[in-house]
């Protein structure tokens, strides 16, 4: 089953916005998410392939609507719940 991340050759995404942005993070939380993920992989809570897998399991409509680091945050929460590091629902409002 192909997942939403697997977009090679897919039509309809339109022209590339070639703006040469130099800021990797657009909000402070994006930087936190980036660094937390690195720490969790370094601590072997999960590995990089599990992380990619978790990003890919995002429902297609949500995946496309989400920003880059929103996808990361989704994956981190998915894995931490799966690994029992946090309880299901513990991170919800």
């Amino acid at each position: 089953m192909a997942r939403m991340n697997d977009v090679g050759g897919m039509q309809g995404f339109g022209p590339v916005d070639t703006t040469d942005d130099t800021q990797p993070f657009h909000a402070d939380w994006e930087a936190r998410v980036f660094a937390l993920n690195g720490a969790l992989i370094a601590q072997k809570v999960y590995n990089l392939d599990e992380f990619r897998d978790a990003v890919e399991t995002m429902p297609p409509a949500e995946y496309l609507a989400a920003s880059y680091y929103e996808r990361w945050f989704f994956a981190i929460r998915t894995l931490l719940e799966r690994k029992g590091v946090v309880a299901a629902g513990e991170l919800d409002d």
């Binding site: 909000a27 936190r32 980036f34 937390l36 969790l40 945050f73 513990e90």
Partner: peptide, 30 residues
């Protein structure tokens, strides 16, 4: 999202998995 990320970071700190200082350092290094 900002609030949720903060909550997650606090939880991970409480459980001894990360420290805020290490997260700051990783961001600076990057």
């Amino acid at each position: 999202i900002s609030r949720r990320v903060r909550r997650l970071e606090t939880l991970l700190e409480d459980r001894g998995i990360v420290t805020g200082a290490a997260v700051d350092e990783a961001i600076d290094a990057f």
